[in-house]
Nucleic acid binder design. Structure first.
Lengths: 138, 138
DNA sequence: TAGTGCTAGTCTCTTTTTGAGACCATACTA
DNA sequence: TAGTATGGTCTCAAAAAGAGACTAGCACTA
């Protein structure tokens, strides 16, 4: 993944540094896609739903400090992009199930690798922070 | 990556749904790490610096619509977490080079897979959005 | 010698995003 | 009759992000 990933469409332009400068918002899949999945809560919900479908209230309990508002909104956003599916069951009171789509699962495959990395290297990062904070640059 | 990744420390608790509920902020590497690398600009800078080291002004030109303020801040954050290194060269005027650390590169490996996915599936996502938006749910 | 531009930022102000919490309607339970 | 649970919406305050002016030292030019 280098240049090709960024610009499906026409303009490859180089500025006077010889750098690519085609990372404009509308032009850039990376930004368009990452902006969604990198929301504060998206990855958590991805993880939850990758395991199995869940209902609204379940998700709320799994991610205790998400506000209801953000849960609703994040789920809507993920649904809009086609990562998850929302099904209403006409029970009383009605229950709603969220489940991953094939598209969502295919994304979760590489994404889970990043999550694994995060778990494995959390300590190094905390160390780096400590060093930085104690170096007086903070 | 499943349960193990989320809780290095003690408490595994299950609520009455039988779900894990240990995704608390302080306890969860995924959130701690992802919160950084999923910043609006972080992935772009990762990509830029994965190729080769760059200077401040270069980065600013590569990502045209980042504000100087956010560029400074994002670089600082990435530096703090140990992903990138900041080197000042005492030229006139002084120049500053940002380059990836080994930690950063090791993260970029799985991360680049996600970025590739994004590039490959951008069309599907845009389609999904269109369907959603036209279904009157928006 | 004043004007211009380069470097890598900081500072302030405004807009956007997020979070906290109240509120809704329905139905079951104590 | 109050309390619980369902899946939300609405409003208001706080936090984060963006726009743009401003800084400092130095080099080049007119």
């Amino acid at each position: 993944m280098t240049a090709a990933a960024h610009s499906q469409s026409a303009s490859f332009s180089a500025n006077n540094d010889g750098e690519r400068s085609d990372w404009d918002a509308g032009n850039c899949p990376v930004r368009d896609v990452m902006n969604q999945i990198s929301g504060k809560w998206s990855t958590l919900l991805f993880e939850a739903l990758a395991a199995k479908p869940h209902r609204f209230g379940e998700l709320r309990r799994m991610v205790p400090d998400i506000s209801q508002r953000m849960l609703t909104q994040t789920l809507r956003d993920l649904q809009r992009d086609g990562y998850i599916e929302r099904t209403v069951f006409p029970t009383k009171p009605p229950s709603v199930e969220y489940r991953m789509t094939p598209l969502g699962s295919s994304l979760f495959e590489p994404l889970s690798k990043v999550l694994e990395w995060a778990a494995a290297n959390h300590a190094s990062i905390k160390d780096a922070r400590k060093v930085y904070d104690e170096s007086g640059l903070a």
